[in-house]
Amino acid sequence: MVIWGIDIQITKSNRKTVSIYVERDGTVAALVPEYLTDEEVIEVIKTKEYQIHKNLAQWTQLNEAKVEREYVSGQSFMYLGRNYRLRLVDEKLGEVKLKNGYFLLSRQEKLKAKELFVEFYKSKLKEKIWPIIERYKGQLGVKPQELKIMELQNRWASCTLKGNVNFHWKCAMAPIDVLNYIVVHELAHIIHPNHSSEFWNTVDKVMANYDSQIKWLRMNGAGMDL
């Protein structure tokens, strides 16, 4: 649906309110009550013009401000929704460590700092995500198969038709509440391999406040990088 020259992706679901988001790639998506006609959807979205343009402006600002982090003492790196400063140390560690409120990295290993940070995030995410999967798979009645932590480009996670679930290592930067949402989102795809109203209804049944988690990802996603 194109309004004001903006292509807005509409998804109808069993909900009472309209929620509008700017996706990571800059596209606009709207979740609307399924009982609304197309004409009513247009009218409601027109009342959200200020919000849509504001969200697009925020997305543009966030992405313009995106910079690659430098691996120097004092640079901040995110983990589970909090920022921790990096401290370069003289001893050889062979890994990135989080200790006493600081990320520790050996000066000798600075050239492979990104690789070591990615390994840190992969390892920590695997530890954190298993209990979350165990918690929600029963509520959703699904049996996920293989779990992988990997590079997924612009996606936070993905689910295959066989029920394998993949998570971007960057998810380790998100708060636990947001990580819970990402897990629920992918487990729901085992039931509904799409973003239909049935899919969003399934997510809503186990996580009624998922809108706030989506908003956090929209606002902070650009900064979750190395």
Score class of each variant (00 low, 15 high):
K46Y: 10
L86Y: 05
R85I: 06
K48W: 02
E91P: 01
A57L: 04
H53R: 14
L88S: 06
R87F: 07
G74L: 09
N63T: 09
D38A: 04
L56S: 01
E68F: 15
K46H: 11
E49N: 03
K48L: 03
L36V: 01
W59T: 01
Y84A: 03
G74H: 10
N55P: 04
V89R: 09
T37P: 00
V44M: 09
N55S: 12
H53V: 07
V44G: 05
E39W: 05
S76L: 09
P33K: 04
Y50P: 02
L88W: 07
E68Q: 14
G81Y: 06
V44P: 02
Y35P: 00
E40I: 00
Y84G: 01
V67I: 12
F77W: 07
R69S: 14
R82Y: 13
I52F: 08
R85S: 14
T47G: 06
R85H: 10
E39D: 14
R87M: 07
T60M: 10
I42K: 15
Q75M: 08
E40A: 03
D90G: 15
Y50I: 07
N83R: 12
K54Y: 14
H53I: 08
Y50D: 13
Q75N: 07
K54L: 11
E91Y: 07
V41L: 03
S76W: 08
I42T: 14
Q51L: 15
S76T: 11
V89N: 10
Y79L: 05
L80K: 14
V41R: 04
E91K: 14
K66R: 15
P33M: 05
S73I: 08
N83D: 13
K54F: 13
T37C: 04
D38L: 05
R87H: 10
V89L: 08
T60W: 12
E40F: 00
Y71S: 03
N63A: 09
H53G: 08
K46A: 10
G81W: 07
L88V: 03
N63G: 08
E49L: 04
E91Q: 15
R85V: 08
E39A: 13
D90S: 15
E43F: 00
E40N: 00
R85N: 13
P33I: 03
R69Y: 13
K46L: 12
T47R: 13
V67R: 15
D90Y: 12
V67E: 14
Q75F: 05
E68N: 14
V89Y: 10
Y71I: 01
K46D: 09
V89T: 13
L88I: 07
F77T: 01
G74K: 07
P33R: 04
Q58A: 12
V32Q: 02
E34H: 05
D38M: 02
V44C: 09
D90E: 15
L86N: 05
K66H: 11
K48F: 06
L36Q: 02
Q58W: 11
E91C: 05
L62C: 09
L80W: 06
T47Q: 11
Q51T: 12
V72L: 13
Q75C: 08
I45S: 03
L86P: 04
P33Y: 03
E43S: 02
E91D: 10
V41N: 02
N83Q: 13
M78P: 09
